[in-house]
Every structure is written in C-alpha cells, then in structure tokens.
C-alpha cells in the first residue's frame, strides 16, 4: 500500500525544511508518494468591489499559475530529481481546513508543515494556520520548527 504524505508549503524559505524532512521520510518508506500542496488564503465571505468581482476568475487563474510556477513545480521537480514520486496541488481557501481537505481527498496519511511566520494581531485573534491545522486535522501532523 502506498503511503501518502502531504506537504504544506507557504512560499517562504522555511518550506524547504519541510520538503527536506518529507523527502528523507519518503526515502525510508518503501512505497511512498508525496503531495506538495500550496493553499492561497481566501475566504468566500470577504468583501470585494464589483470590478474586483468581474476580474476574479482571471485573477484566480493568475494566482494559481503563479503558485504553480514559483512554489509547487520547483518543489515537485526537486523531489522527482531525488527519485521520489511527487505531485503538486494548488487550492484556494482557509489554509488549515483546505490542507486537511486535500489530505482527505488524496488519501494522505500524514501532513507535514513548517511553523508559520504569522505574527501580531492576526495570530492572537485567529491563531496561526499551523496551530489551527494541528487542532482540526483528521490525520497526524508533523510541524517542522
């Protein structure tokens, strides 16, 4: 049975540590596939102008394309170079909730993320994405410091 690990990247340099940890783990497991996930923070309950709404589909495609090119594809390529089976996923939504959804949909066994760099008021009010993921995930979560 293939073991699937989902790696959540946030586009920051700390994501490399999560990738390194995941690739090391994958190399120790006989049949392992990595899913590199990047979640673009987005809420369906945010407020936008009419013009932003009209351009939203175009912007969404651009955001997905940028995330693929700059974050996900380089990460997947580096894993494949090491001989690890890997694929990339880009989604919009709440980071913690969406990472868990991706993991459930892909049949993942574990989520690996880095400690996020959120600070200040947002973190105090809403908690960090990592903390929220740890509390709400339906599979084990490894947080790389």
């Amino acid at each position: 049975m293939t073991t699937k690990l989902v790696i959540g990247l946030d586009g920051a340099g700390s994501g490399d540590r999560a990738l390194d940890f995941a690739s090391d783990l994958a190399s120790r497991i006989e049949d392992c596939e990595l899913v590199v996930a990047y979640v673009i923070e987005w809420s369906p309950f945010s407020f936008q102008t009419a013009e932003e709404n009209a351009q939203r589909h175009k912007r969404r495609e651009e955001e997905i394309s940028t995330a693929r090119e700059r974050v996900v594809e380089p990460a997947v390529a580096s894993l494949q170079k090491k001989g690890i089976t890997a694929k990339g996923v880009v989604r919009h939504g709440d980071v913690a909730h969406t990472l868990n959804s991706i993991c459930e949909k892909e049949g993942g066994h574990q989520i690996i993320v880095c400690r996020t760099s959120e600070s200040g008021l947002t973190k105090r009010i809403f908690g960090s994405s990592t903390a929220n993921l740890v509390m709400s995930a339906t599979v084990p979560v490894t947080v790389i410091g």
């Binding site: 673009i40 987005w42 369906p44 309950f45 945010s46 407020f47 936008q48 102008t49 009419a50 709404n53 939203r56 589909h57 969404r60 955001e63 997905i64 989604r91 919009h92 939504g93 969406t98 959804s101």
Partner: peptide
C-alpha cells in the same frame, strides 16, 4: 452559506460576495 458551492471552485466569486457587493450599492 456556500452549502451548494463546489469546493473545487474556491477562489471564484462566491454568492455571498456578489450579494455583499450589490448590497454596498
């Protein structure tokens, strides 16, 4: 509330956003 919104369409204009924009006018 988004009960009938396809999760794969996340990031597109939601029903709530269209309603809120219209209401602001």
């Amino acid at each position: 509330k988004g009960d009938y919104s396809d999760p794969d369409d996340a990031g597109e204009v939601s029903h709530f956003q269209a309603l809120a924009t219209a209401l602001s006018g």
